[in-house]
């Protein structure tokens, strides 16, 4: 399947896309409010619980987290060494854990590194939750509701529709070039770039021809005939959506209140 959407009947699936978007925003903002890893860890756990209740296959999550691991480790190390100790309020956090070539690795820096990693983790997991539970039509409706020009939604929807077509085109072009002796993606660095030019040029030229035909087909199907278009399945806020949105607003207000009391700093 093209888009990472898993159809299912879970509670999160039934929520309106706006509720989910707000929830996503709230989690993300909270993760930026606090410097201490404890609260971010809480949010990660919270997000994980939601992730498991929607019944997504765990392989999908692993696939996303795995390539990020080296970056996470690098972030931890470099933040530990480089974050200036004077930035920490508490004495404990200014403590040096160990030094490498006389560069101190501070406890606070290490903790802040963890916070950064958790921050990215929160955004990754919550993004995943939204994309796994929301069909693309709902996302396009959301764009419309927040008054983004309707052309954007159309371009995105049509773009998605054309990915398999262009994928096939690209494969056919590679085959056609191979059949006349091209060796694509092999040989040295420079040679392989050259071989991809022989693929990209026919791909672009063919796309330009296709886009003319597509424009004509749009007109043939009445694109732009009316000021408005009919949406077959319009998104709707229900009672539970309002309830959860209210909860989300309370949550973020609470987070800012905590922060104003200097909780969750380093």
């Amino acid at each position: 399947m093209l888009i990472e959407y898993y159809p299912s009947e879970s509670y999160v699936h039934k929520l309106d896309v706006r509720t989910k978007a707000l929830g996503f925003l709230v989690f993300t903002i909270i993760s930026f409010v606090f410097l201490s890893p404890v609260i971010n860890l809480l949010i990660v756990l919270c997000a994980c619980v939601i992730l498991f209740t929607i019944g997504t296959p765990s392989t999908g999550i692993k696939k996303i987290i795995k390539p990020l691991l080296p970056i996470f480790i690098l972030m931890l190390l470099i933040t530990g060494f480089t974050y200036p100790a004077s930035n920490f309020i508490s004495e404990e956090n200014q403590r040096t854990l160990f030094s490498l070539w006389s560069i101190p690795f501070t406890l606070g820096g290490f903790l802040y590194g963890i916070t950064l990693v958790l921050r990215i983790l929160i955004m990754v997991i919550t993004s995943t939750i939204v994309t796994y539970t929301t069909p693309i039509e709902d996302i396009l409706q959301l764009l419309k509701k927040i008054k983004i020009p309707h052309q954007f939604a159309f371009i995105i929807a049509t773009g998605i529709r054309f990915i398999p077509t262009m994928q096939k085109k690209s494969e056919m072009i590679q085959e056609a070039q191979k059949a006349r002796g091209a060796e694509i993606g092999t040989g040295g660095f420079i040679k392989s770039i050259g071989s991809y030019i022989t693929v990209l040029i026919p791909l672009i030229v063919d796309s330009l021809r296709m886009s003319d035909n597509l424009a004509i087909a749009m007109l043939n199907r009445g694109f732009g005939a009316m000021k408005t278009t009919t949406d077959l399945n319009e998104i709707k806020m229900r009672g539970r959506d309002y309830l959860i949105c209210f909860g989300e607003v309370i949550l973020i207000a609470f987070a800012f209140w905590l922060r104003s009391k200097n909780i969750g700093v380093l």
């Binding site: 052309q151 159309f154 371009i155 995105i156 049509t158 773009g159 998605i160 529709r161 054309f162 990915i163 077509t165 262009m166 791909l203 672009i204 796309s207 330009l208 296709m210 886009s211 003319d212 597509l214 424009a215 749009m218 007109l219 694109f223 732009g224």
Partner: peptide
């Protein structure tokens, strides 16, 4: 224009 919209959609897919 429809021409530009179509072209953008295809280039995004590309």
């Amino acid at each position: 224009s429809s021409k530009r919209i179509a072209r953008m959609a295809i280039f995004i897919a590309l």
